[in-house]
Design a protein around this nucleic acid. Structure first.
Lengths: 126, 126
DNA sequence: ATTAAAACTAACTCTAAGGTTAGTATAACA
DNA sequence: TGTTATACTAACCTTAGAGTTAGTTTTAAT
């Protein structure tokens, strides 16, 4: 890895990975993606019923940023009271296998990692 | 995905994915992993020279958490001035392929994603 | 006339991640 | 004698992500 590439990629704006991980890495995005993958199409309040601990605001923010990135498609039905449906796009479908491989790795190693953390605490005495 | 699993995984402590992504998702972890993968073994200041924009504090914090998770091995040589070397563990090596698959996906789709974001801004007029 | 329903938004606060600056220990070297 | 080198840490400040509460819109049903 030469210096020029590194300098470039240390900058968030220009780093494709950071650009993507900044979204996926936040608190609710991954969960919303996985629920939509499973359920195919959901309305706002249906999603909220699946993920009960998220606030309306954060669900709204998360969906907006997924929509902005072209990972979620939002369909409004002109009714009162309103009806809005959310579903994954093809782009999201192409992302999901890679996410699942990370999910699987996490499940496979979480016990070891937690054991390491405990041991580290002991060794560093705090 | 049944309600019980969802309720359980909405909780950060118990969710293996969140446990791992919370680390990988932060600002510097991924970059440190990739530099160490490339360079094999590096001292603190050498790492700092590769990633010039990171502060000493954040490099220290990032390395500590990687060490705590058993992803980085830290070797101290009892010298003055001190010498400390960092390298990836096997656990990190087993993680890296999955990270690379995400990295590659990001590179492949970043242009489309940025185009989507721009278009979204236009459509939502702000 | 009042209430309900759905999908939000506004305005505010709180918290933790990240950044800045200065300082420590110790021996060797000029 | 004073400076340098290395790998940090302490104390402090700033900012952005996340949470809370209340309110909006519009029509239909009671």
């Amino acid at each position: 890895m030469d210096q020029e590439i590194l300098k470039k990629y240390s900058n968030v704006e220009e780093c494709p990975v950071r650009n993507v991980l900044d979204r996926i890495g936040n608190k609710w995005t991954l969960l919303v993606l996985l629920v939509l993958e499973e359920e195919k199409v959901l309305r706002f309040n249906e999603l909220h019923n699946y993920i009960v601990t998220i606030s309306q605001k954060m669900l709204s923010v998360t969906l907006k940023s997924l929509e902005a990135d072209g990972l979620v498609k939002r369909t409004i039905y002109p009714q009162v009271p309103p009806k809005v449906e959310y579903e994954l796009t093809e782009r999201a479908q192409s992302l999901l296998p890679h996410i699942h491989s990370l999910v699987d790795w996490s499940k496979d190693h979480i016990n070891d990692i937690k054991a390491s953390r405990k041991n580290y605490e002991l060794v560093t005495k705090k």
